[in-house]
């Protein structure tokens, strides 16, 4: 099959970028979207032109490294990561727009690569349970209801790809932040730091310059792991409780 790609090209951070057009022919519908970009890069290289820089690593939908806005949608038309998108989701002759994640806290580093270290800093702020190695009690000492463990798991499947931010009209990272607050907040081990976690993570989220949540759910629509919007409500509850408590 044949497609025309309009790809965002930007030589480096803070440089002016623009969309450039490339035509590719002889593609297989079984090719993944990123393999198509590999093919494009092979061609560009042989023509002596700078290949397109894009992030990807595991290419099986779990590491969260890849992420492109394809035809205006984060991760493109199918509800998976970009690496799991195949050309059979497109038609012969399609014109496909490819852009990077866009948000101020995700500056473009080159072409389609963005800097997502802001996510790491949100986790640093409190996205953990403080349990030094060696200090753990026996694993079966505290049973956890299967339902809680399962809900915690649903939230814990977040891969930190940033599609939620890319899709959110407000550029909010609430779904990412809330997934972690929910994961740890549902487990008994997570209770001692539940208040401080919500406070510190939300403060860091705001500090990074992410927007606010308006509960419209664009994030969950593109989330490859289907993190539910309920996590944000849980975060709100934890945060409001922690922010208004008077016992310190």
């Amino acid at each position: 099959m044949k497609v025309t790609l309009n790809i965002w090209r930007q030589p480096k951070r803070d440089a002016q970028g623009k969309m450039e057009s490339y035509e590719l022919d002889g593609l297989s519908e079984h090719m993944s979207f990123l393999e198509m970009l590999d093919v494009l890069n092979e061609r560009l290289t042989s023509e002596g032109r700078d290949p397109v820089a894009f992030d990807s690593d595991c290419r099986e939908g779990i590491c969260g490294m890849c992420g492109l806005v394809i035809n205006g949608e984060a991760h493109g038309p199918s509800p998976t990561t970009t690496c799991q998108l195949h050309l059979r989701s497109f038609s012969d002759g399609d014109v496909i727009d490819v852009e990077p994640w866009r948000a101020e806290p995700f500056p473009v580093l080159k072409d389609l690569i963005v800097d997502r270290t802001s996510f790491d800093r949100i986790i640093q702020a409190g996205g953990y349970i403080s349990a030094n190695t060696g200090s753990a009690p026996e694993a079966n000492a505290a049973p956890i209801a299967q339902a809680d463990a399962s809900d915690a798991f649903d939230a814990a499947t977040c891969i930190g790809c940033g599609a939620c931010v890319a899709a959110c009209p407000n550029g909010s990272a609430m779904l990412f932040t809330a997934a972690k607050v929910t994961h740890l907040g549902l487990l008994p081990q997570g209770q001692p730091e539940r208040n401080s976690r919500a406070l510190d993570m939300v403060n860091q989220h705001d500090e990074e310059g992410f927007g606010n949540c308006t509960n419209i759910g664009e994030c969950t629509a593109v989330c490859p792991k289907g993190i539910p919007l309920e996590t944000i409500s849980r975060l709100n509850r934890d945060l409001l409780k922690a922010a208004t408590r008077t016992d310190g």
Binding site: A136, A139, N140, S150, L187, Q189
Partner: peptide, 17 residues
């Protein structure tokens, strides 16, 4: 033990173990 303490959501049986 260590992973459970960190909050790794391992699969559990109905009894919570």
């Amino acid at each position: 033990d260590q992973c459970v303490a960190q909050g790794v959501p391992f699969a559990r049986e109905y009894g919570g173990l």
